[in-house]
Design a protein around this nucleic acid. Structure first.
Lengths: 151, 151
DNA sequence: TCCAGCGTTGCGAACGATTTGCATTCGGCT
DNA sequence: AGCCGAATGCAAATCGTTCGCAACGCTGGA
């Protein structure tokens, strides 16, 4: 099927190579390190969090910002916005179950993924009714997690 | 001594008075002016836009920021986030049809309101499944408006 | 394997949105 | 009319993010 070769455990890194090559982009230490951090983390991370999780001195914060833009552009990572003024990123989940949302605790910021996409149906309906094309959406949920309810 | 006959289509200003009084807050020129601007505008406005729409010298930009926080806290205005790093505000539509979303053109930033709330049902379902309480959501749609499709 | 070219990075300054400290002003109750 | 604390203006401070520029290091070709 797809992985022809040595990509057994980290298909994303191989994917990175392919995509970057295709775009005449370079495979650098910082970019690989950032992807490794994202792969190891289950929920969206901010630039600062990614930077902090990087082996110290691995790269500059500005490079983290630049790399994430690039990785987002080529579709390797996905950007989320929880409304707190900081962007967060997650490895893009390729294919079927790709699109998803989150449930964020308004008190402790715990994040839980919501696996279904709940709004895809509406995109076409809204497109029809409004005349807009290429309709997408952003949807996130907020609430008080079980832990924080106790206090 | 205020405008006696002019408030019939602006119930919000009376409402402002009541609410602010209840909170031991003061009814100031800037606050009334800001509400007047919001009432006259159909779609969400940024702080800067509101500031620009104010009679010149009416108040400081910092006051616009502070006032909108206050008005949001007491539920008179609603905050929206279109992911461009600037908060936007709209008069809260009281009661049932209050909750709504927007469809934003990714090219010209035209904004169209989407009157139904599409995700209320899920809040309870998600609350049950996750154990989170007081679940709310943010949902906005993006697309290319008819005008911008032509170019 | 080596080299040149250009994509990348580091670092610091620049930026836009938002917030805050502080002295002054003003709304509202007595 | 007068006082007290809330609200404002102004400017400086924060925060996340971007940008300019010189140094650096991938990569494809010799």
């Amino acid at each position: 099927m797809k992985n022809p070769g040595c990509n057994h455990h980290r298909p994303e890194l191989g994917d990175l190579t392919d995509r970057l090559r295709r775009e005449a982009r370079r495979i650098t230490g910082p970019r690989q390190a950032i992807l490794r951090v994202l792969q190891a983390h289950p929920s969206p991370m901010s630039n600062k969090e990614i930077f902090a999780a990087l082996p110290k001195g691995e790269c500059d914060l500005a490079t983290v910002y630049r790399s994430l833009h690039l990785l987002e552009d080529i579709g390797l990572v996905e950007r989320f916005d929880f409304g707190d003024g900081t962007a967060r990123f997650e490895m893009a989940r390729g294919g079927h179950s790709g699109h998803h949302h989150h449930l964020v605790c308004t008190s402790c910021n715990a994040i839980q993924a919501i696996e279904d996409c709940l709004a895809l149906d509406w995109e076409s309906r809204i497109s029809q009714e409004s005349g807009f094309k290429m309709v997408t959406h952003k949807l996130e949920f907020f609430g008080l997690c079980p832990q924080c309810q106790k206090t």
